[in-house]
Computed example of a mutant assay.
Amino acid sequence: MTMWEMLAVFVAGVSAGTINTIVGSGTLITFPVLLATGLPPVTATVSNALGLIPGSISGAIGYRKELEGQRPRVLKLAVGALIGGLTGATLLLALPSTAFETIVPILVAMALVLVILQPRISKAVQRRREHTGVTARPDGGPLLFIGLMLASVYGGYFTAAQGIIYLSLMGMLLDDTMQRLNAVKNVLAAVVNSIAALFFLFVADFNWTAVVLIAIGSALGGQIGAKVGRRLSPAILRALIVTVGALAIVQLLLR
């Protein structure tokens, strides 16, 4: 890897750490850069997963204020994320590299629709709860657990736009602010990246130079993303999610 390539990977790591903390989809920045340096797709995916761990942890720490009072919810959902992440990492090595290329843009598109409609749907759900006298479950119930676990399978496989899928599911099934849900998203992403990376350490090839550069860059980006993201209003955050998600779909379709 040349000096210019190393610089490009580092900058991509900073950018990915920032965007992952605010929205998600940072892999759509780092993955093409790693491929451009000559790494094979699976090696690039594994190196990227390892490198993004510090960024995910950094982003979660940056959102620690928004995590207050959410410990039971986070612990329960993290179990599903762990199971899903390990399953996805296993599938990455077992399935052809093109296995998810068809379904991923569809998943992201569905998630964006949910993000756009979430305020209206949440109001409708709230009115129904008031009419029936049923209160919202603080952990989202079995539906959210299963949904996030399945999203984590995809996250362990590739990670691109997994944060958008997380936010869409939690926005539909949890009665909470976007910023607090974003904080939970960062923790779940850290869990998925970490369990997938631990699995890859023992069974897959990766590039240490790329891992270190992305790790340092994403850790820095995680702090930047936390400072910027927590200042965004729910409307702006939702608009940013939709914009990044739309760009993600375009890039995934053009790959």
Rank of each mutant, 00 (worst) to 15 (best):
M1Q: 10
W4R: 04
L7D: 00
L7I: 15
A8R: 13
A8K: 13
V9E: 04
V9I: 15
I19R: 06
N20V: 07
T21N: 11
T21V: 12
T21S: 09
G24K: 02
G24T: 00
T27I: 03
T27V: 11
F31Y: 15
P32M: 07
P32Q: 03
L34R: 10
L34I: 09
L34P: 06
A36N: 07
T37A: 13
P41L: 11
V42P: 02
T43I: 14
T43R: 13
G51A: 11
L52C: 03
L52V: 12
I53H: 11
I53L: 15
P54A: 07
I57L: 12
S58N: 05
R64E: 05
K65F: 04
E66G: 03
E66A: 15
G69F: 03
Q70I: 03
R73H: 04
R73Y: 00
V74D: 05
L75F: 12
A78C: 01
V79P: 00
L86H: 02
L86C: 02
A89K: 03
L91N: 05
L93A: 08
A94T: 05
L95Q: 12
P96K: 10
T98A: 11
A99F: 12
T102L: 09
I106W: 05
V108K: 06
A111T: 08
L112F: 08
V115C: 04
I121S: 00
A124N: 12
R127A: 15
H131A: 15
T132C: 06
G133E: 07
V134G: 00
R137W: 07
L143C: 07
L143S: 12
L144P: 06
L144E: 11
L148S: 13
A151P: 01
A151S: 13
V153D: 08
Y154H: 09
G155K: 03
Y157I: 04
T159G: 02
A161M: 06
Q162M: 14
Y166K: 11
L167Q: 10
M170P: 01
M170D: 02
G171T: 05
D175R: 13
D176Y: 00
T177E: 13
R180F: 07
N182G: 15
A183M: 12
V184M: 08
K185C: 11
A196P: 09
A196L: 09
F200N: 01
V203A: 15
F206A: 13
T209H: 10
T209A: 10
L213M: 14
I214V: 15
S218M: 14
S218N: 14
A219Y: 02
L220P: 02
Q223W: 01
A226G: 10
G229W: 11
R231A: 15
L232W: 07
S233A: 05
A235V: 14
L237A: 02
L237E: 07
R238G: 04
A239C: 00
A239Q: 12
L240P: 03
L247S: 06
L247N: 05
I249H: 08
L252E: 08
L254Q: 15
